[in-house]
């Protein structure tokens, strides 16, 4: 099943399971979603539960927060993560804060879904990876699924969770196939549980969002060409973060490299590097390495865009540099 179909299935199952779940967003109904994640939902669930909205991101998200406070379980689709920046006010000042600032009297059980990522020449207003931005905000949960199974499992959990969840998909993953367990209902996937994609003794590579796949790719090259066995970890959710699994691994390998597509300053890797050195300084044989996207807006021109994104070669190089004699 493809990643986008897995998401569609999760939406369907949760719409069926709970009448208070509804979904709204731009072009999700008649148009069936800019990336076709909501395909067929309008037809099957009707206009009450699958609502096309005007192009008004801040208000759509805010209306979602209000609806959640009023007892519903809204899922808001934002077409692309860059457009969620128009809704930051409602996301940070409302969704993330309401429970806290009203002393727990009311919650915001909502999901804000959006895809991120470059590689399709969409240029500086449509291509960024902003998981670090959302990771920064207390009060939000942040999911970054990289496989079809995780997409489905985590989305179902997100919809049932009583907290506001920023659910970050990746544009380059929608068409990717993966095994998805039948009956996702049996065991909802938990937030805060990392997946170890590959076991290894020599270095820990943590890959975020689509970069979890790039990291796995690099691990194969490292094994084939450099006799380095990498352990590849996909945290799957950034808040809550399964730091224990990462630290356990680093204690075993004594080296860590973090791979993300977003920007370096204040990135997920910057944060994780700080946590790793705080928790496992004595176990490190080399500085924690980071591989990130270029520190620029995403350029349109194809060679520039690809040069701005991290690839397997970058990860291999970064890992090798942690083995350099100091």
């Amino acid at each position: 099943m493809r990643y986008r179909e897995a998401l569609n299935q999760a939406l369907r199952e949760e719409l069926e399971a709970d009448d208070n779940v509804f979904i709204m967003g731009e072009d999700i109904g008649v148009f069936q979603g800019a990336f076709k994640v909501t395909e067929g939902l309008l037809e099957d669930f009707g206009e009450k539960r699958v609502r096309d909205t005007p192009i008004s991101e801040n208000t759509i998200v805010g209306a979602g927060v209000g609806a959640a406070m009023g007892g519903l379980r809204p899922i808001v689709e934002i077409m692309t993560i860059n457009f969620s920046l128009l809704a930051l006010d409602q996301i940070i000042n409302a969704a993330a804060s309401v429970r806290y600032m009203f002393g727990g009297q009311v919650g915001v059980p909502m999901v804000i879904r959006m895809p991120q990522g470059g590689g399709h020449q969409l240029g500086p207003t449509h291509s960024h990876c902003l998981e670090a931005l959302y990771l920064h905000i207390p009060g939000l949960l942040v999911a970054v699924p990289s496989t079809a199974a995780d997409a489905k499992g985590l989305l179902k959990t997100a919809i049932r969770d009583p907290n506001p969840v920023i659910f970050i998909e990746h544009e380059a993953l929608y068409g990717r196939k993966g095994e998805v367990p039948e009956n996702g209902d049996a065991e909802p996937m938990r937030f805060g549980e990392a997946a170890i994609r590959r076991e290894g003794e020599d270095v820990t590579i943590v890959g975020i969002s689509r970069q979890a796949l790039v990291a796995a790719d690099a691990a194969e090259t490292l094994a084939d060409e450099h006799e380095i066995e990498a352990e590849v970890i996909d945290p799957r959710t950034l808040r809550p973060l399964d730091l224990d699994t990462i630290i356990e691994s680093v204690k075993k390998t004594n080296r860590a490299v973090i791979v993300e597509e977003g920007w370096p300053h204040g990135g997920v890797g910057a944060n994780l590097a700080a946590l790793i050195q705080e928790q496992a300084f004595d176990h490190l044989d080399a500085p924690v390495g980071r591989v990130t996207g270029a520190d620029t807006p995403m350029p349109y021109s194809k060679p520039l865009e690809q040069a701005a994104m991290p690839h397997s070669e970058h990860v291999v190089k970064a890992v090798l540099s942690t083995f350099r004699d100091l």
């Binding site: 069936q32 800019a34 590689g119 399709h120 993953l173 929608y174 068409g175 689509r210």
Partner: peptide
């Protein structure tokens, strides 16, 4: 063919177009 989606430079690029 969206099955090719794993390759970063050939994933589906279908926002706004479906």
């Amino acid at each position: 063919d969206p099955d090719e989606g794993e390759e970063p430079s050939s994933g589906p690029r279908d926002e706004e177009g479906g």
